[in-house]
Simulated scan of single mutants.
Amino acid sequence: MGVRRAGRRRWLRWTAGLGALALVTGVLAVLVWNGVVWPNRFLVGGYEVRGVDVSSYQGEIDWPVLAAQDLDFAFLKATEGSSHVDERFAANWDGARSTDLVVGAYHFLSFESPGERQAAHVVSQVPADAGTLPPVVDVEYYGEFLTDPPSRDELRGILDPLLADLEAHYGAPPIIYTTQELRSSYLGDDYDRYPLWIRSVALTPDLPRERWEFWQYSDRDHLDGYVGEEEHIDMNVFDGSLGDLDALTLP
């Protein structure tokens, strides 16, 4: 009987321990999902220059309020493919430019239209204003391409003329935004002449710091100054000083 009682006590302790672990794990998962806890926030303390990227999902933005929260730059979604324009781009461009933020626009690359047509679309929407950052080309999987991605040659066949035409118009190499997986699989070192904006929201980038300029370290932050269907906002740092950031802008 004593042996059975001891075994039952061990089983109860083990069950209680598992229950406590599950509770802690569940609470932590909720805190991470809601952006209350985010590991990368502890890893970006050494970076002095930080900023946001936004789209119509953040809705109407009060740019003076947003900019006053220790921000230095902002990337705004402008275009996608060869015809789509973000509905908030014009308002965001004017609003962000009215602050002290260094402002840039980004284009979401489509795998379904030629790079030349996409470049012409960007040029038609994004001003080549002095003091703004070169346009960004956002290269990532989407939709059906998440499971059936294009080949390396297909992607480069769209990306290369897009980058070339944008550089010719804006007079500076465009910035490439991408994930670590896609850079490794599709781009490699062949595009190192273009400033790199790397997405790595779980851990630090697995590339040396000298290989990237911008790091998107969180997609679960909360700031004041916007009201949209997306309550979170993406946070980024720049690996350099404000002077270095200004040196990237268009003349």
Results as ranks from 00 to 15, higher is better:
Lys77Leu: 04
Pro174Ala: 12
Leu28Phe: 12
Glu60Asn: 09
Leu18Met: 10
Leu162Ile: 00
Ser218Asp: 13
Arg13His: 06
Glu210Arg: 13
Val122Arg: 09
Gly228Pro: 10
Leu248Cys: 05
Glu231Leu: 13
Arg156Glu: 11
Arg4Pro: 00
Arg199His: 00
Leu31Asn: 03
Thr179Glu: 10
Val102Cys: 07
Asp165Arg: 13
Pro127Gly: 08
Gly81Gln: 04
Glu229Phe: 11
Ala164Asp: 12
Asp239Leu: 06
Val85Lys: 09
Val49Asp: 02
Trp212Cys: 08
Asp224Met: 14
Ala202Asn: 10
Gln125Pro: 01
Asp53Thr: 06
Ser200Lys: 07
Trp33Tyr: 14
Asn40Thr: 14
Phe42Ile: 00
Leu166Ser: 06
Gly188Asn: 07
Ala119Cys: 09
Gly46Met: 04
Asp129Phe: 11
Tyr106Val: 03
Phe214Asp: 05
Val3Trp: 12
Asp160Pro: 00
Ile61Lys: 05
Glu87Gln: 14
Arg193Gln: 11
Ala247Met: 02
Leu155Ile: 04
Ala96Thr: 02
Gly19Thr: 06
Tyr47Leu: 09
Trp33Gln: 15
Thr249Val: 00
Val54Met: 09
Ala6Ile: 12
Trp33Gly: 05
Ile158Cys: 05
Val44Trp: 10
Leu162Lys: 01
Trp212Asn: 08
Gly45Lys: 13
Arg193Asn: 05
Phe108Trp: 12
Gln125Ala: 13
Pro195Ile: 01
Asp94Phe: 07
Glu116Asp: 13
Arg88Pro: 00
Asp234Arg: 03
Ser124Met: 08
Leu207Glu: 04
Ala120Gly: 05
Ser124His: 04
Ser200Pro: 03
Val136Trp: 03
Lys77His: 04
Trp212His: 12
Ala120His: 04
Asp148Lys: 13
Thr179Pro: 02
Arg4Thr: 12
Gly143Met: 07
Arg9Trp: 10
Tyr141Trp: 14
Phe89Ser: 04
Gly157Pro: 00
Val49Gln: 03
Gly188Glu: 10
Asp94Asn: 11
Glu116Ile: 00
Gly143Arg: 11
Gly115Phe: 07
Tyr106Trp: 09
Ser56Cys: 08
Val102His: 08
Glu87Arg: 15
Asp189Ala: 15
Tyr47Arg: 10
Leu159Glu: 03
Phe238Ala: 08
Glu144Gly: 02
Ile198Gln: 01
Asp70Thr: 05
Arg50Gly: 06
Asp129Ile: 02
Ser184Gln: 15
Asp160Gln: 09
Leu43Ile: 02
Glu48Ala: 15
Val65Trp: 04
Asp72Ala: 03
Ala105Trp: 11
Leu28Ser: 13
Ala68Asp: 12
Arg41Gly: 07
Ser200Val: 01
Pro135Ala: 10
Glu210Cys: 02
Asp72Val: 00
Ser83Pro: 00
Asp70Val: 03
Asp148His: 13
Asp70Glu: 14
Asp246Arg: 15
Asn236His: 14
Glu87His: 14
Ala68Gln: 08
Ala20Leu: 15
Gly81Pro: 01
Tyr217Ala: 08
Asp94Ile: 11
Leu21Ser: 07
Asp234Tyr: 02
Leu182Gly: 04
Gly225His: 06
Trp212Glu: 11
Asp153Pro: 01
Ala90His: 14
His121Trp: 12
Leu162Arg: 00
Val36Ala: 15
Tyr170Arg: 03
Asp206Trp: 13
Arg10Met: 10
Trp93Lys: 10
Ile175Lys: 07
Ser185Ile: 07
Ile61Trp: 07
Ala130Pro: 06
